Amino acid sequence: MTEDRVVADGLYKAFGDNEVLKGVSFRVAAGSVTTIIGPSGSGKTTLLRALNALDVPDAGTVCIGDVSVDFAKPVSKDELRRYRMQSGFVFQSHNLFPHKTVLQNVTEGPIVVQKQPRQEAEAAAVQLLEQVGLAEKRDQYPYQLSGGQQQRVGIARALALRPKVVLFDEPTSALDPELVGEVLSVIKDLAVEGWTLVVVTHEIQFARQVSNQVLFTDRGVILEQGPPDAVIGDPKEERTRQFLQRILNPL
């Protein structure tokens, strides 16, 4: 039986009067791919950011690997730091350090956060850059790269921390259409290698191809979840059907 790598239970998050997450619960098996789909404003990105505590939940518990946090109680800085180290985050718009080279961007976390020796961190970073097809760009700066290449550096940076789960926030939404494929290809390769991935995406066919589990969110709740053939291929909820109809048949 596959162990659960992520267990989220009863997550709530509000910004002022706007309740964005309303008691969200789900599990992610180790070595699996979970995609989160849904309309804009449905809470997808907030849910992902809550898993990394970039947006600290107001209530609920999350367990990643063997680190568990109950957000209804005060959480110390040390607890939060240890919890955040369990996951890597890939942002929509890369968020690379513009004044650092590609190699320096990838080694920043291992050296500064995890206190790895520089030589060890750089050797691992070069391997990761080879994995995402950018080893020859190691000494270049972000402005010298295409958007797709920057996003692949962002993926390598997240992997460098050897996290228990990698979180992707709409990793292709800021890219020109012709660059989308190169980033999705890297994510597919990571899935094949057995990384545990949670991906917020509008790429429905990608979600169908790589997911073990699809979550459909709407108005702060998970309305439907299950394997892609069920949620995307044969949704039970009328709201899910409406959403997929608009995405897959826009005209």
Results as ranks from 00 to 15, higher is better:
Gln144Asn: 11
Met85Glu: 13
Ala59Ser: 15
Ala230Phe: 13
Lys137Cys: 15
Gly23Pro: 08
Ser32Asp: 14
Phe15Ile: 08
Leu134Met: 09
Leu21Cys: 06
Gln127Glu: 15
Leu128His: 11
Glu130Ile: 01
Val132Thr: 09
Val166Met: 03
Glu237Asp: 13
Pro228Ile: 09
Ser93Pro: 02
Ile37Phe: 04
Leu145Pro: 10
Gly31Asp: 12
Thr201Met: 07
Val132Ser: 11
Asp139Trp: 05
Gln151Ile: 07
His99Trp: 06
Thr107Asp: 09
Arg84Leu: 05
Ile64Gln: 03
Val56Ala: 05
Tyr83Ala: 00
Thr45Ser: 15
Ala156Arg: 05
Val166Arg: 00
Arg82Leu: 02
Glu120Ala: 15
Val214Glu: 12
Gln149Ser: 10
Leu248Glu: 11
Pro177Gln: 06
Leu47Asp: 02
Trp195Cys: 07
Lys13Ser: 03
Arg27His: 09
Val106Met: 06
Leu145Tyr: 07
Glu170Lys: 07
Pro39Ala: 15
Gln149Pro: 12
Ser185Gln: 13
Arg157Lys: 08
Ala174Asp: 04
Thr217Ile: 14
Asn18Pro: 08
Gly16Lys: 03
Ser146Gln: 11
Glu130Lys: 11
Thr240Asp: 04
Pro74Phe: 10
Ile36Arg: 01
Val221Lys: 01
Glu203Ser: 07
Val62Lys: 00
Ile222Arg: 00
Val132His: 09
Thr61Asn: 02
Val20Thr: 14
Gly65Gln: 04
Gly38Met: 03
Lys22Arg: 15
Tyr143Gly: 03
Gly88Arg: 04
Asp139Thr: 08
Gln119Pro: 00
Asp9Glu: 15
Ala174Gly: 11
Gln104Ile: 06
Glu193Ala: 14
Pro227Asp: 13
Tyr143Cys: 10
Leu103Arg: 02
Glu122Tyr: 06
Gly181Ala: 09
Thr34His: 03
Gly147Thr: 08
Gly60Leu: 02
Glu122Thr: 08
Glu19His: 14
Gly38Ser: 12
Ile232Leu: 15
Glu122Gln: 14
Val153Thr: 10
Lys13Asp: 03
Asp176Ile: 00
Val214Gln: 12
Leu223Met: 14
Asp234Thr: 07
Ser68Pro: 00
Asp169Met: 07
Val106Gly: 06
Phe26Ser: 00
Gly147Ala: 07
Pro177Cys: 11
Leu251Arg: 13
Val102Arg: 03
His99Val: 03
Gly109Pro: 01
Leu159Gln: 07
Thr34Gly: 04
Leu134Pro: 12
Gly43Phe: 01
Tyr143Glu: 13
Asn212Asp: 15
Ala174His: 11
Arg239Glu: 10
Met1Gln: 12
Leu179Tyr: 05
Lys77His: 12
Arg84Tyr: 10
Lys44Gly: 01
Ile232Gln: 10
Gln245Ala: 13
Gly65His: 07
Phe26Gln: 00
His99Ser: 14
